[in-house]
Computed example of a mutant assay.
Amino acid sequence: MTEPVGPAIARQRLHTYLRDRREAQGHTASAVAKKMRWSQSKLNRIENGVVTIQPIEVKALLEFYGVHDPDEVERLMDLSEISRERRWWREEKLSQEFKDFVAYESEASGLNGYFALFVPGLLQTPAYAQALSSPAIREAVADSTGMDLTEVRRKRQETLFDRLDGSRPPTLRMAIDEAVLLRPVGGGQVMADQLDHLLAVSRRPTVQLTVVPLALGAHGGLGGTFELLEFAGKQDESVVFIETAVDDFLLTEKTKTDTFRKIMDDLLSSGLSGSDATREIRAARRRLPG
């Protein structure tokens, strides 16, 4: 492989290549499935990235598509092998969309998001996260999966800060609504510690925190919280994740992700960043004990 990739990007590159190759040669999905002695639904799931494909199956499919370059075959078989790696999130009781999001998040070169109601999960202190998972909130939004969201959040944070401390740190750009700074989740001391943590994280060279002031009025972020992930590879498309009380949505269609990129860019340019953001966070912190 010419560059390191993880299972999420490996799967995306492979299923995109296989679908494009089939369409370029004019094969129908039903004809390919019949030739491979698969069900058409299996081929559809492979081409849509829903399931992985074994390296030996990749080799057989490439032979049918007339791909004989040994280096290219080896590259695609490598992608297949990487895509099948088991990471910690695959064992959690999460929605498939959330698992895919965590996989992409662990590989993204740029992590962007707008948060209107609470501090970004990746930047929450344990006490703040626990307060968000309080019985009152759990009763309001029943969780039938049995998953420990606090533990999942901790593992995501661990992955992020390991990467931020590494040789190729990702860029973290988070736009946080001013109301989030003023809402004392967990009480005054918990919120004070949370704001101190935001100030500490903001000093990292690849982290940009933007405060979206209430005085800004109507803006694109009022449509709701979202996270936008970008990748270093030019062929790797961005993804957008939207989490709600009942469903998670992972958007990969370029026309949709481009809309959220524009909203993100508008928020970053119209909000308060750098020393201005720091001043707002410190002002909110001074209202709290400690």
Rank of each mutant, 00 (worst) to 15 (best):
D193H: 08
R156E: 09
A175T: 03
S167P: 08
V152W: 02
V190N: 04
A129Q: 03
Q130E: 13
R203F: 04
G146Q: 04
P135E: 14
A136I: 11
R153C: 06
H197F: 07
H197W: 00
P126C: 06
E158K: 01
E158Y: 11
S202L: 00
L160Q: 08
S167E: 11
P135V: 05
M191E: 03
G188P: 15
R153Q: 14
L172K: 07
S144C: 02
F161Y: 15
L195I: 00
G186Q: 01
H197Y: 11
D177C: 07
D143H: 04
L149R: 15
R156S: 10
D196W: 06
T150Y: 12
H197R: 10
T150D: 01
R203S: 09
R183S: 05
E178V: 12
L181M: 09
I137Q: 07
L164A: 10
L199Y: 00
F161R: 12
G186S: 04
V190A: 03
P135F: 14
R138E: 05
L199K: 04
S167Y: 10
G187A: 14
K155V: 07
L209W: 06
A140C: 13
E178P: 10
R183W: 07
T206H: 04
D143N: 06
Y128V: 06
L164I: 04
R204D: 00
K155A: 09
D196S: 13
D165M: 12
T206E: 09
L198Q: 01
R204G: 07
Q189M: 09
Y128S: 08
G188K: 15
D177R: 02
L172A: 11
A140D: 12
A142P: 07
L198H: 04
T145E: 00
G146N: 07
M174H: 11
R168A: 11
V185I: 11
S167A: 15
A175L: 10
R138V: 03
L199C: 05
G187L: 10
A127K: 12
P184H: 12
P184S: 11
R173A: 11
R173L: 10
L132V: 02
S144P: 00
G187D: 15
H197P: 05
L160V: 09
M191A: 02
R154Y: 15
V152L: 08
L195H: 04
A179L: 06
L209H: 01
A142E: 06
S202H: 08
V185A: 01
D196R: 08
D177H: 13
A200R: 12
G166E: 00
R203Q: 12
T171H: 03
E158Q: 14
V190P: 02
T145W: 06
Q189N: 06
A175W: 03
S134K: 02
R163H: 14
P126A: 04
R183N: 01
R138T: 12
L149E: 15
P170V: 13
L199G: 02
E151A: 12
L181T: 08
D143V: 09
Q130I: 11
D143S: 08
R156H: 05
L198I: 11
V190D: 01
T145P: 09
L182V: 14
R203K: 15
A175Y: 08
Q157A: 03
L172H: 06
D193T: 14
D162M: 13
T206D: 05
L172Q: 03
V185P: 07
V141G: 01
D165Q: 12
I137V: 14
D162T: 14
